[in-house]
C-alpha cells in the first residue's frame, strides 16, 4: 500500500468540495482509476494531494505523511498533470519537456537532455521535438504533457483526464504505456478518467467519487455494477463480465432527460 488518503477535506471559498474522503488506497505498480460524474471532486482530490489546493486530512505516500509538506517538497515526490494544458508559450516540444525535467532534477545538462530524448522517443514524440507548442493539435499537446510528467520520474503520478483529447489509437497506446511504466518502475499511478471501459480495461483498482464523497473502491469487476452506475451517473447501463477479460460497460440511457422539466422531451 503506497498511497493512502483519509479524512480529506477541501473547501474552495465557502463551498465544501471534498467531504472527509477516507479509505482511498492506491498501490505501487498498479493503475488506479478515479471515476465519477462532473463536479464529483476528482480534479480537486488530485490537486489537494499535489498541494495545489489547500486541504486538511491524512495523505501518506510510502509511509511518509505528505499532507503537511509544501508544494515544492511534494513536487519532488509526485506530479499532477492538469486537465488544462493549453499553453501557448513560445517553446518547442523539446524545451517544454526539458523545462519539466530541470524544475525537478539537479543534474548535468547532458543528462537532462538524454532523459528528455528518452521520454520523447517513448511517446513517439521525437519527430515533433522542434514543433512549437502553439501549433500542436490537442492530442499532441496531451502527449507532450504526459512526456513532461514521466520525465520528472515521480513516485506518484496523478493524471487528470490524460486521454480526453486523444484518438482511439493514442488512448490505448498511452494507457498501455502508463500501465507498463507503473509495473516496471513500481509507480503509484492515479488517473481521473470518464471512459469507464478504458478504466475497466487498464485499471487494477477504481475509486468512485460522487459529490465529494467516496462511494466505493475496489477492482473494476467489483465496483462497476449496473446498480452503482445508476446511483452515481443516473444512467441505465448494461455491464458484461466476459471470462478472463475486464468488464464491458454499455451506457443505455440517461435516467433524467434534458428538457423534461419544460415539456421539450
Amino acid at each position: 500500500m503506497t498511497l493512502t488518503i483519509d479524512r480529506l477535506d477541501c473547501r474552495l471559498g465557502n463551498r465544501r468540495i471534498l467531504h472527509g474522503l477516507s479509505g482511498l488506497r492506491a498501490r505501487a505498480g498498479e493503475i488506479t482509476a478515479l471515476i465519477g460524474p462532473n463536479g464529483a471532486g476528482k480534479s480537486t482530490l488530485l490537486k489537494a494531494v499535489a498541494g495545489i489546493e489547500k486541504a486538511s486530512g491524512d495523505i501518506v505516500l510510502e509511509n511518509r505523511a505528505i499532507g503537511t509538506l509544501s508544494i515544492e517538497q511534494r513536487a519532488g515526490r509526485l506530479y499532477y498533470l492538469p486537465q488544462e494544458i493549453g499553453s501557448r508559450a513560445a517553446l518547442n516540444v523539446f524545451e517544454a519537456v526539458l523545462l519539466a525535467r530541470r524544475t525537478q532534477v539537479a543534474e548535468s545538462p547532458a543528462e537532462a537532455m538524454d532523459a528528455v530524448d528518452q521520454a520523447l522517443c517513448s511517446l513517439e514524440l521525437d519527430s515533433l521535438a522542434e514543433r512549437e507548442l502553439a501549433v500542436l493539435s490537442g492530442g499532441q499537446r496531451q502527449r507532450v504533457a504526459i512526456a513532461q510528467a514521466i520525465v520528472r520520474q515521480p513516485r506518484l503520478l496523478m493524471l487528470d483526464e490524460p486521454t480526453s483529447a486523444l484518438d482511439l489509437h493514442h488512448q490505448l497506446q498511452v494507457l498501455d504505456y502508463l500501465q507498463r511504466l507503473a509495473r516496471r518502475k513500481q509507480l503509484v499511478v492515479v488517473i481521473a478518467i470518464h471512459d469507464l471501459n478504458l478504466a475497466a480495461r487498464f485499471a487494477d483498482h477504481i475509486w468512485i467519487l460522487q459529490s465529494g464523497e467516496h462511494i466505493a473502491s475496489g477492482a473494476p469487476g467489483e465496483v462497476l455494477t449496473t446498480e452503482r452506475l445508476r446511483q452515481v451517473y443516473a444512467i441505465t447501463a448494461h455491464v458484461e463480465w466476459p471470462v478472463d477479460e475486464p468488464p464491458r460497460v454499455t451506457p443505455l440511457a440517461a435516467i433524467r432527460q434534458l428538457g423534461s422539466n419544460n415539456g421539450i422531451a
Binding site: L91, L99, T103
Partner: peptide
C-alpha cells in the same frame, strides 16, 4: 529562469512543477 519559463505553461502546471 526555469521557474519563470514554467509560468508560461499556466499557473496550475507551474504549481504542479513545485513552483510557489
Amino acid at each position: 529562469h526555469w521557474r519563470l519559463t514554467a509560468l508560461r505553461l499556466g499557473d496550475v502546471q507551474a504549481k504542479a512543477m513545485g513552483i510557489d
